[in-house]
Structures are given as structure tokens and as C-alpha cells.
Write a protein that binds this DNA or RNA. Structure first.
Lengths: 185, 185
DNA sequence: CTCCCTTCGTAACAAGCGTTACGGTAACAT
DNA sequence: ATGTTACCGTAACGCTTGTTACGAAGGGAG
């Protein structure tokens, strides 16, 4: 059911994300959808939280299985880019929610909460990889990294041919090396 | 008239961008809007091109009045972030068009054309600032920079309190210095 | 003055939207 | 067997949307 919202948002875009389209994607009618959720806002909010939970689980798995903080940092930043079809669709859905949050107070609060948690996670990893840095330097480098991966995901989602996966990874490695966060262990 | 589309898109978001809302913002009725544009798609496309032209003119002005390629690079990257209310609204509108382009072939072609031109411009400035670099290194650094400014604009547009202008500028300067593109002249 | 053409407001249309009311069905408790 | 409850399809309501048809106002050309 929640996956139905996700598929509609990825394939049909934000404007086509209607209750009937979700019901059609889930193989049921609008009655079931409106029975599970009080209104469309709640449906959107649930799908948004589902997206966050999916990426969070993947990030935690990557971080726990990494050898050192530098490798963990690279791994979790890598999954935020649009490297394959799945992550590209996630980027499209992410942008759709972001555009929808402009007029939806609940969605934008959820968005800010998730973004601040994501930023804090990257700051924690940067600080672990470079313990001697000041908090300001950690924050600045972390912001540069999360903004870069976020931006390249948007670029690649809209134009995959112009931003292939190899260029995105080369960009990530170059930025990590430039900031002094590559292979410190 | 074109400014009416822009103001509606910035204040009401993409979902509320209806023909009637544009007419109300322009102080006329739907008859005038539908007389100027054959349909809503053409209206969106015109607004998209207007946004591009606005930013392009500002970028050219900044680049021509810069002292050296390094200063030009920093100036044009700076204007792509969400530093004040105007650029923040531009970022919101930009994301709205990006989300709308998912199902609109004309919009996505326009988007790709503009993005590739923007990328080529930054690559040209990076190459002028660091003439000894290989084209690959130029392309990688340019991609890192445009992705970073694009991403931080999205972050700051959705959460201005968490991403103040000073932090964005500190991030830009740190990234330029890390990539070796600060004060080379 | 008359004709014509551009310009733009008015009104309406069909279609699609979120939402609600209602009825049927199946499972479960008694 | 019967009542109760949760579940979900059906159909409709009111509303907004993009789009179209029509008419009035106004300004040149003859």
C-alpha cells in the first residue's frame, strides 16, 4: 500500500499523485485507501516516513559494516547519490516530497527533522574520521558533503545520461580527498 | 504577467499554480491568460525560460565584473545558493519546476539544456582559474561545486533557520580552498 | 460612419479531484 | 443461529481544474 504511493510518485510525478492513482497502483479502490488513512495528507505523511525509514535502515547497515569512519562516511554518502535506477527513483520521490512540502506544514516539519538527523549523522562520522578538527570545521565539511551528494542526486535524477554513476563517484572521491577525509585510518 | 506566474509558484507552490491563481495574481481574468498562452504547458514553459533568463543575466553580470577567474567562479557559485529571501524563493521555484518536469517532456528538455549550459560555464571558469589541470580534473571539480551549491540551495530553501547564509558562504569558501580554487591569481 | 480586427472579460462545459455515506460480506463471539 | 464488528467496494456529492465559446470594448482604415 505504501509502496503504491512510492511507485506512483516515482513514475507519474507529483501532480498525478491522487487517491485514485494510489488505489489503482495498489490494486484496490479508493474505499480501502480512505479507510486506512483519514485523508490525503496522512497518506502522504505516511509515505514520507516510509521513505525515510527505508533509507535510514540502509544507512545504518552500511555504517555498521564499514571498516573505519572514513569508509563509513564514503559509503553513506554514496548511497545518497543517484547511481542506479533505484536510487534515481528515490531521488525523484525525494524531490517530489520536497516540492510538496512547500505548502504542507506537516511534511516540511518531517523534512526538517529528517534532514537535521542526517546532517548530525554525517557530522558525527566526520568528527570520528578527523578527531582533531574543531566543531566548526567538522560542520562546514559535513555540510559541503551532504549538499554535494544531495545536489548531484538532483542533477542525475533529471539527466542520467549527463551524470553517469562513474562521474558521481569520482566527484565524491575527489571531494573527500580535497577535504582531507579519504583514507585516514 | 510572467512575474505573476513566478510569485504564485514561489508563494503557493506548484500544486496551487493554476490558471485562475495566475490570473488573480496578475489582476486579470482567465481569459487574458488563455489568450496569451495556448495552454497551461506553454505557460509553465514560458515561466521556466523566464527564470533561466533572469539567473543567466545575473550570472553574466557577475562574471564580467569580476577581477579574475577565481573571483568570478566564487561569485557565480554564490548566487546559486539560497542566501536571502529572493534567492531562496528562486530555489523553491527551481525545485518546483524540477518536480514538475518528471512528467513533462518539454520541461525536462529545457531543464537539461539549461543545466548543461550551467555546467559548461562553471567548467570554463574552473579551467581558466587552473589552466594546468587536465579536463577530467576540471570536470570533476566543477561537478562537485555545482552539485554542492545546488544541494545547499535545496536544504536552505526548505529550512532557512538551520542553514543560514553565513554557513553557506563558509561552506563555499572551504570547498573552493579544499579544491585549490581560492585566491590563485 | 462603418467595418474589421485585436483584446479581454464572462460564462459555461466536461473532467477529475478529495471526501463521505451507505451497503454488503466475512469473521468472530456468544 | 444470531448479533456485532471490522473491512472494503460502490456510488455519489461538492468543488476545482483546464479549456472553450461567445460577446463587448476600442481603435485604426476606408
Amino acid at each position: 500500500m505504501s509502496r503504491a504511493v512510492w511507485s506512483v510518485l516515482a513514475e507519474q510525478g507529483l501532480e498525478r499523485l491522487t487517491v485514485r492513482a494510489v488505489a489503482a497502483a495498489a490494486g484496490c479502490t479508493t474505499g480501502l485507501v480512505m479507510h486506512r488513512f483519514p485523508n490525503r495528507q496522512a497518506l502522504l505523511l505516511h509515505a514520507r516516513r516510509l521513505l525515510h525509514e527505508t533509507t535510514r535502515a540502509r544507512v545504518e547497515s552500511l555504517e555498521s559494516s564499514a571498516a573505519d569512519p572514513c569508509a563509513a562516511l564514503r559509503a553513506i554518502l554514496r548511497q545518497g547519490m543517484a547511481l542506479d535506477e533505484q536510487t534515481r527513483q528515490e531521488a525523484i520521490v525525494w524531490m517530489g516530497f520536497l516540492a510538496a512540502a512547500v505548502t504542507d506544514t506537516e511534511l516540511i516539519e518531517e523534512h526538517r527533522r529528517n534532514n537535521r538527523a542526517w546532517r548530525a549523522r554525517v557530522e558525527r562520522l566526520v568528527s570520528a574520521a578527523a578527531p582533531e578538527w574543531t566543531p566548526q570545521r567538522v560542520a562546514t565539511a559535513a555540510l559541503a558533503l551532504i549538499a554535494m551528494t544531495e545536489g548531484v542526486a538532483a542533477y542525475a535524477a533529471a539527466d542520467p545520461a549527463a551524470f553517469p554513476a562513474a562521474e558521481q563517484e569520482a566527484m565524491l572521491d575527489a571531494a573527500l580527498a580535497a577535504h582531507g577525509l579519504a583514507g585516514r585510518s
